[in-house]
């Protein structure tokens, strides 16, 4: 199923989760950028499941059909919006994602594309928030590990509220390049 020689043609899935996308200029720009990359599938979770009732089978099928899963979302309370947690709880089932016979995700790559309101300096020891973003994202990293996935360096856009239109466009370009790179088999696993 998975081709382990990461050469060409990785199938990339972007799962976008923002409860009120109109409130976020950055996420809107990143979403548009993702849509512009050839060979990338984009799904908006809050549009698919506005009532939070996730179609588990459909989600598992979509994920199984891709090699790289990108979770794109704002950083809410040092984590994902609620629907992403619900998605983990419902879709990553025992026997499918982990546990006995749960090998559907093994070898796939996992990346978060996260926008934070706070600037980069507000994270880390002694700062306003007290922890690094990577530390705060440890539960997500552990989730990926338990499912046998390769956890990639997150794509971070920080201080998002104060970015100018030009800066946002710049970030959007970087994001598109990153997604294209993942599609073409680039990108090292975290800590490698």
């Amino acid at each position: 199923m998975m081709n382990n020689d990461r050469t060409k043609g990785m199938r990339v899935l972007v799962l976008h989760a923002h409860p009120a996308p109109r409130r976020s200029r950055v996420n809107a720009a990143l979403l548009a950028a993702a849509r512009g990359v050839e060979g990338v599938t984009v799904r908006e979770l809050y549009e698919e499941y506005p009532d939070f009732f996730i179609d588990v089978k459909a989600e598992q099928e979509v994920v199984a059909a891709h090699d790289v899963v990108v979770m794109q979302h704002p950083f809410y309370w040092y984590s994902t919006p609620a629907l992403v947690k619900e998605w983990f709880d419902e879709v990553l089932t025992s026997g499918w994602a982990y546990g006995e016979g749960g090998t559907a995700l093994r070898g796939k790559r996992w990346m978060h594309a996260v926008s934070t309101g706070g600037a980069a300096e507000s994270y880390g020891p002694g700062s306003e928030h007290g922890f690094t973003v990577r530390e705060l994202m440890a539960p997500l990293e552990a989730t990926a590990r338990l499912c046998g996935m390769e956890y990639l360096e997150p794509f971070l856009v920080q201080g998002a509220g104060r970015l100018s239109g030009a800066e946002i466009a710049e970030w959007a370009g970087r994001y598109a390049a990153r997604l294209a790179g993942l599609r073409d088999g680039d990108g090292e696993p975290l800590g490698a």
Partner: peptide
């Protein structure tokens, strides 16, 4: 609340 365009950054700073 839903329609505010720039409110996002404040919210994410909670």
């Amino acid at each position: 609340r839903e329609g505010r365009d720039d409110g996002w950054s404040e919210r994410s700073e909670k």
